[in-house]
Write a protein that binds this DNA or RNA. Structure first.
Lengths: 133, 133
DNA sequence: AACCATTGCGGGCATATACCCGCGATATGA
DNA sequence: TCATATCGCGGGTATATGCCCGCAATGGTT
């Protein structure tokens, strides 16, 4: 039936609500959850090109490029050329490292709160379902 | 642990993947899923103010205002003043109605595909979980 | 070596989203 | 009635996101 709830709209709304939760928690650090997540990826990779970062984050390369430039303006990451002169390599700055150190416990707090609300099986089921999309 | 998957990032990524599915299906109609969903809401309400539409869609009023203006430029909705001269009232145009008539079966197709992949219990569990966010 | 296909980016364009500010319209209380 | 508070919007600003185009670097073929 056409009047049934739209899965996409419901997912997007939940996504916005959840992002708002993380954003609120991360306010003291001055980054939102998208930026924090990107910083975490850079930390995990140590050095990574824009294209690779886009692949990891499942985001368009141009999107990654712009998002990284914002973090660069904030002084949280540094961009340089790779051996392959085409590549733009991203690395954390000391301030970027510090932002992660400061943000980690805040991020953990939100994750824990969600864990508590959903329970282990709930989390597992959710992730299994989301992977299918 | 800080290295566990971020619920928000996972949800956002799934949301993007799902939206891309709907967008692709709706291409013949020339609208994306966000616009189609908004059109559906307007149809359901017949006439509705921007603020009310924002409440229904769980979107900021200013966001709704801009999104509606895009639909207006496309000729799919019409804006007028309400009895309360402050209110901007939204209504579907004939073209807007037609877009919904054309899009409904395409949208149904995606919904059905998801139903088939998740099964009735899967869908129920997902929605129960999302509501908690 | 020269040519051509591929790859990595930047920039342009468009939509989506939120927050804030200010203006005008409406409702409320003295 | 008049002053004040509230409400509904529009516009400014900023980030997020994707698609397309063009440029420069790289790689592979002849």
């Amino acid at each position: 039936m056409t009047s049934s709830p739209c899965y996409c709209t419901a997912l997007k709304a939940a996504s916005r609500r959840l992002a708002a939760l993380y954003d609120e928690a991360l306010k003291p650090v001055g980054v939102n959850i998208a930026q924090f997540s990107l910083l975490r990826r850079v930390r995990r990779a140590e050095t990574v090109t824009l294209t690779e970062l886009g692949r990891l984050a499942e985001l368009d390369r141009s999107t990654i490029g712009r998002n990284v430039r914002v973090l660069e303006r904030m002084g949280l990451v540094a961009l340089s050329r790779g051996e392959d002169q085409r590549e733009a390599v991203v690395r954390l700055t000391p301030a970027g490292h510090q932002a992660l150190v400061d943000g980690d416990p805040l991020w953990d707090g939100v994750q824990d709160a969600i864990d508590a609300r959903l329970g282990p099986t709930g989390v597992l089921e959710l992730f299994t379902t989301l992977r299918d999309f």
